[in-house]
Design a protein around this nucleic acid. Structure first.
Lengths: 248, 248
DNA sequence: GAGTGGTCTAGACCACGGG
DNA sequence: CCGTGGTCTAGACCACTCT
C-alpha cells in the first residue's frame, strides 16, 4: 500500500472495460511477457481477444501511454517503454555523460543553428537590448536510438563570438568551456509538465498532445552573466528528474 | 518563433478536426472569452456549433486538457484552468507560505494519520530495520478551493515520538521544528511526470489517467538523519517547478 | 498490397451533478 | 428532474509503414 518508487496501478477490477484492458496489459508487461521495445498485439487483435470496440481498446492503450508504460510509433504499433533516464538539471555535466553513466547510448543531432536577434523576452533573459545578436541552436537527442527530447539553446554572441563554426553534435558544454572559457557556476531551472505539440511533436515523431516535460534552464557564470539559455522538451516517459540541494 | 515562457500552440489549420477545435477553443480562451474557472459550453453544444461527432469534440477537449489549458469536473463540465503555482521543492518553506506568497488561498486537509511498520523500501530510506515504527500522514492540499495535490508523508517515530497527537491541517514543518527541534538542511527531490490513478485520482476527484507530477522528497537534518519522506502527487496543470542551485 | 494506427460518424445507455 | 460528461458500439475511410 505504500512502497516502491513508482505509483501503484489501478485496482484489478474497475467495472470499466478500458481500465480492465489497461490492467490486463499492465500485468502482462509486468510479468515480462513483453520486454522494453517489444511491440504489443495490434488493436484489432486485442479487439478479438478482448471482445470490445476498437475505440475502447484505444482508450485502454492511451491510458497506459499516459502512464508512460507504453508508447506508440505512428502507424506502426504500440511498444513497451524502456526505463527512464535519471536527470539532474542542476548539474552541469551534459546529456552525453549522464546517459552513458546509466549504461545507455546517447546521440545528438543538430537540427538548426542560426543567428537571431533578441526579442523582448530574450533581451530580458540576457540583460541586453532588444535586437542584440544571439545564436540559436536546435538539437534532437536520443537514448538508444529513440528520440527523447528536442532542445532550443540560446547563447549570447558577445560571450561566444563565431560559435556557429562549431559542430554541435558533441558537447556544447565542452565548446563553451574550452574555446571561450565560460564556466557555469549557477543554474536556474524551471520544469513544467506540458503537452508536446506542433514543432516539438513533429521533431520527436509523436502524436501532438502527448504529455511531455518542459525544462527551462538559465546558466550563469561567476560574474552573473547568462552563459546559456536552454529550453528542453522531453518525452514524459523518458525522464525522471532528480535534484539534490541544500536548504536555503 | 522563440519567445515567451510557455510552448507555442499548434498551427491554426492542421487538417484534423479535433486539432482545429482545439485551436479554436484555445484562441477564444486566450482572447479572454472565458476566464480561469469559467465553464466551457457543453460537449453537445459544441457539437451543434462545430458540426462534428461528439467523440471528435471530446478528443479536442482532451487535447486542451493534456496541455493544461482546461480541466474537467466529473459530470459537471469543462473549465478553464487557473494559473499554476510556482513551486521550489528544494526550499523548506511549506506549501502554505509559498501559495500565499503568490496571492492564492491554500488549504490543507488531513485524510489519514496512522502508525505503520517500515517495509523493506521504507526501512532503506530511513536506515532502520524492517518493521521499525513509522508514522504515515496522508493529506490533500488545495489552492483556491481546488484540490491540487495529495501527499503521503512518512516520519520516523524515533525522531518525533507521539507525533500523531497533533493536527496536520497546519504546517508539519512547524511542528517538527518547534516540538522536536528537527531542522532540515538538505533535500533530495525526485520528480517524474506520471498518470494519476487509483487512490490518487479518487482523492483529487479526477478521472484516472490524467497526467500528474510525482514529487518524492527526502529531507535530512544536519546529522544526515531522514527527517521526513514525502511523496506528492500533483495535478499537472496546477504546478510549475522552479529550482535554483549552484553547480557542483 | 496487406496491415497498421489515425480519424471520424451516429448513434446508445449510464451515473452523477446541480452550470 | 434534466443536463452533464463517461462509456461503449459498430461501423467507415484514410495515410502511412513495412511489424
Amino acid at each position: 500500500m505504500f512502497s516502491g518508487t513508482i505509483p501503484a496501478a489501478a485496482s484489478p477490477a474497475d467495472g470499466v472495460q478500458y481500465l480492465e484492458l489497461r490492467n490486463a496489459l499492465a500485468a502482462r508487461i509486468a510479468a515480462g511477457e513483453w520486454r522494453p521495445g517489444d511491440r504489443l498485439p495490434s488493436e484489432r487483435a486485442l479487439q478479438v481477444s478482448g471482445q470490445a470496440a476498437r475505440g475502447t481498446i484505444r482508450e485502454g492503450l492511451a491510458q497506459l501511454e499516459a502512464e508512460g508504460l507504453i508508447y506508440r510509433k505512428d502507424r506502426s504499433g504500440w511498444y513497451v517503454s524502456p526505463a527512464p533516464i535519471v536527470y539532474d538539471p542542476t548539474r552541469w555535466e551534459g546529456f552525453i555523460s549522464y546517459v552513458e553513466a546509466q549504461g545507455r547510448a546517447p546521440a545528438t543531432e543538430t537540427l538548426d543553428a542560426m543567428a537571431i536577434a533578441a526579442d523582448a523576452f530574450l533581451a530580458g533573459v540576457f540583460g541586453r537590448e532588444a535586437g542584440a545578436p544571439l545564436n540559436l541552436i536546435r538539437r534532437r537527442r536520443y537514448v538508444d536510438d529513440r528520440p527523447v527530447l528536442v532542445e532550443y539553446i540560446v547563447v549570447d554572441v558577445a560571450l561566444a563570438p563565431d560559435l556557429l563554426r562549431f559542430s554541435f553534435d558533441q558537447s556544447l558544454t565542452g565548446i563553451l568551456k574550452s574555446h571561450y572559457g565560460l564556466a557555469v557556476t549557477r543554474n536556474k531551472v524551471e520544469m513544467q509538465p506540458c503537452a508536446l505539440t506542433g514543432r516539438e511533436a513533429e521533431a520527436l515523431g509523436i502524436k501532438p498532445g502527448l504529455p511531455g516535460l518542459n525544462v527551462v534552464r538559465t546558466s550563469y557564470d561567476a560574474q552573473g552573466r547568462v552563459v546559456e539559455f536552454d529550453r528542453e522538451y522531453w518525452r514524459h516517459d523518458a525522464v525522471k528528474i532528480s535534484v539534490e540541494a541544500r536548504v536555503r
